[in-house]
């Protein structure tokens, strides 16, 4: 298969970028999208040009490192899945493919297609945890948890932290990311002691990072590689309302 590529090139965060034309020739349909970019980079290297910078690590859809927008879609055309799980058989021979980084104000471009997503780490640092000191844990079976509760918590916990939700959202909102963590921990009895403070701190951190708000467009859910349901955003809103009320009553 052959493809025409328009790829975003930007030397660093300070300079401006532009789309540059490339060609990918004789690509097997069983090549992954990132392997296709590897091949393009090999060609660039052979011609003495600088290869295209893009992020990837596990290349099996779980680490959340890869982050590309293909033809305007975060992670490309094969949902659910990260862009490392997209195969060239999903494209038409001869197609023109536009490749851009995730476009979110809170994810500044590092170089070409690589963005800085440390804002997501800071949201978790604000409170996305259960304080459990090693050495103090009670016997694991001492608190039975109903299977449906833990299954639902697992649905939320499956988030891979790629940031596609924010990239797909017209408001660049990280609500789905934040909602997934808040819900995962709020659904378990172990998360209960910090339930109120956690959601308040995480939402404040999310706002401070400059992410937008949710206006129910569901683009996040559509591109999420881990199939996190947007209904967790409703759960986040309930948790936030509950926590705000409790906090105000305490004051």
């Amino acid at each position: 298969m052959n493809f025409r590529l328009k790829i975003w090139r930007q030397p660093n965060a300070k300079s401006s970028g532009k789309l540059v034309d490339y060609e990918a020739k004789d690509i097997s349909p069983n090549t992954s999208f990132l392997e296709m970019l590897d091949i393009v980079n090999e060609d660039l290297l052979a011609r003495g040009e600088e290869p295209i910078a893009f992020d990837s690590d596990c290349r099996e859809g779980i680490c959340g490192t890869c982050a590309l927008t293909i033809n305007g879609e975060a992670h490309g055309p094969d949902h659910p899945g990260a862009v490392c799980e997209v195969y060239m058989r999903k494209f038409r021979d001869g197609e023109t493919i536009i490749v851009e980084p995730f476009r979110v104000r809170s994810f500044p471009v590092v170089k070409d297609l690589v963005v800085d997503r440390s804002a997501l780490d800071r949201i978790v640092q604000a409170g996305g945890f259960i304080s459990a000191r090693a050495g103090s844990a009670p016997e694991a079976n001492s608190i039975p948890i109903p299977k449906p509760d833990v299954d639902l918590a697992m649905e939320a916990a499956a988030c891979i932290g790629c940031g596609a939700c924010a990239a797909a959202c017209p408001n660049a909102s990280a609500m789905l990311f934040t909602a997934a963590k808040v819900s995962h921990l709020a659904l378990l009895p172990q998360g209960n002691p910090e339930r109120t403070s956690r959601v308040l701190k995480m939402v404040h951190a999310m706002d401070a990072e400059g992410f937008g708000n949710c206006t129910n467009t569901y683009e996040c859910e559509a591109v999420c590689p881990a199939e996190i349901s947007a209904s967790f955003i409703a759960k986040l809103n309930r948790e936030y309302a509950r926590a705000s009320l409790r906090a105000s009553v305490r004051e």
Binding site: I130, S136, A137, P138, A140, A153, H184, L188, Q190
Partner: peptide, 8 residues
């Protein structure tokens, strides 16, 4: 330890 941390 992992259960106490909320590992589902």
């Amino acid at each position: 330890q992992c259960v106490a941390q909320g590992v589902p």
